[in-house]
């Protein structure tokens, strides 16, 4: 099987988010950048499928210079090679989800015979959860997002998927090629071993410029449909009322506070 895993670099979830002085963007200095946690599940699933059915796992990422480190992290988990669409510092920050999805689809279109495209169910920076279905729509392939379980019938080229809903799951059947979005619970991602980290340094990371894909950042930015105007931080939470002392008394007082003051009970 030939599997592409779309991987995004995001701020470590431990990051405290601060705004740039003009409030128009997030402060990026001092951020530790990591592989989107959901993309780890996508990579792990791809590796398991490759090992069961042979084939290769190709990471595809669109991002600036700093993403190479994240790509190497995915290669160290065991992916075979990577395609890195280089995002130039100017202009491309303005692109919207559709623009970015077009870039990823153009990168995929440089090669033939993909069986699967795996993505994370959502990126933990923009929380958009749009890229998977967008890529599927642009490729005109079927999709299943928020996937908790996957069975592949390679001969019949059919997939059986378990998808998470609110308080429920559903089974979905679909043909290959398809786009699948990985959810936590699908598998347990492996840690890169030291030998694999060393090997990853020598694996192929093919750099592609937007121009090589017949695209340019300025027109993609011009065509954008979603414009980010700025950010704000959540309002500060009020000073807490903290009770100490005898548990029964504290509990009784809390009930009164929830009833009288917070008016929740």
């Amino acid at each position: 099987m030939k599997i592409a895993v779309l991987v995004k670099q995001v701020p470590d979830t431990a990051t405290r988010i601060a705004l740039a002085a003009d409030g128009a963007s997030i402060q990026t200095s001092g951020i530790k950048w990591v592989l989107n946690p959901y993309d780890e599940f996508a990579i792990e699933e791809a590796l398991k499928l490759r090992d069961a059915h042979t084939g290769e796992v190709v990471l595809v990422s669109f991002g600036p210079d700093r993403v190479e480190e994240t790509i190497r992290q995915g290669l160290a988990m065991g992916a075979d090679r990577a395609i890195w669409v280089k995002e130039e510092p100017s202009g491309s920050a303005e692109m919207d989800y559709l623009g970015r999805a077009q870039v990823l689809v153009a990168a995929l279109a440089q090669e033939a015979e993909w069986d699967l495209v795996l993505v994370g169910k959502q990126a933990v920076d923009d929380d958009a959860a749009q890229t998977g279905p967008l890529v599927a729509a642009l490729l005109n392939w079927p999709q299943a997002m928020v996937v908790l379980g996957l069975e592949v019938d390679a001969r019949a080229r059919r997939l059986k998927v378990i998808r998470e809903l609110e308080g429920a799951t559903e089974r979905v059947e679909l043909p290959m090629p398809a786009v699948l979005g990985a959810q936590r619970g699908l598998n347990v991602p492996r840690y890169p071993t030291l030998p694999n980290i060393m090997k990853a340094k020598r694996k192929e990371v093919r750099q592609v410029a937007l121009a090589d894909l017949g695209l340019d950042a300025a027109s993609l930015a011009d065509d954008r449909r979603v414009v980010v105007e700025g950010y704000q931080l959540p309002p500060p939470r009020p000073e807490p009322k903290v009770l100490t002392g005898d548990p029964a008394e504290a509990a009784a007082e809390l009930v009164q506070l929830l009833h009288r003051e917070a008016q929740i009970l």
Partner: peptide, 23 residues
Amino acid sequence: ATAFGKDLAPRVSGLLKAGLASD
């Protein structure tokens, strides 16, 4: 923005090339 809407809306966005703000 439920499992249903999160699955459907971005696909519609891709088909129509229309902008989607999610969640």
